[in-house]
Amino acid sequence: MKKLIEIKALSFGYRDNRVLEDIDLDISEQDYLLVIGPNGGGKTTLLKLILGIIEPWSGSITFNKDISNRLGYVPQSSNFNKNFPITVFNMVLTGCINSGNFLKRYRKEDIEKTEKILEQVNLYDKRNENINNLSGGQLQRSLIARSLVSDPAVLLLDEPTASIDISSKVNLKDFLNQLNEKMTIVVVTHDLTAFARTYTHIACINKNLYPHGKGELNTQVLEKVYGCPVELLGHGIPHTILKNHG
């Protein structure tokens, strides 16, 4: 598989507090990567570094020339201005904006593409509603739709299951599986159960990064990452239940 993103010796921190240290990670075509780890372990920070929202202290992130401008981002639903008066259609349409066209009017193709993707995520009927009126699952789909209108090669999602119910989680999992046939998926999450049996790789992160292939995850690995006892429940789904946080 073609390597799309190559991260080498990456370090970053806030003020004097080093959050990520010496991170090496390769992300390739068709990968479905889960990034897990404790709060403050640097999961979201890694995502922001890949997206160029923040600059690393040291190290490098190299993109395959075919995808340098084709990263799709689905933020946590708490990261944007939920009180902003905007319809679902207009919100998804903002995904077409980039540095090269933000001074120009939307093209006819942008509008058609937005309508098509709203149909794809089953939100066409909601297109004229305020985003405030959407349920957690619908809002999540509208955010994914916004990132899809820019035709991404890699889709990066930050805690996509944080505020949605169980049936929406199942739908999200199925939808991401479909998308993974066409693009690389990177998910930062606490919720391993929602993505069970779907991912191709797991990266455990807590300042340092521990990459694993499918099926390599076990109690010892998780305890090392979380820094406290961890219990994996049965039925083939690795739950991360912390026995005690002491």
Binding site: P75, F102, K104
Partner: peptide
């Protein structure tokens, strides 16, 4: 009128606007 799209974009979701390389 000229900067409308960019101003709306940063007002709704500044972080996302950064990922789209907007100034």
């Amino acid at each position: 009128l000229i900067f409308y799209k960019g101003l709306v974009s940063i007002s709704f979701d500044e972080e996302y606007a950064k990922t789209r390389k907007l100034p």
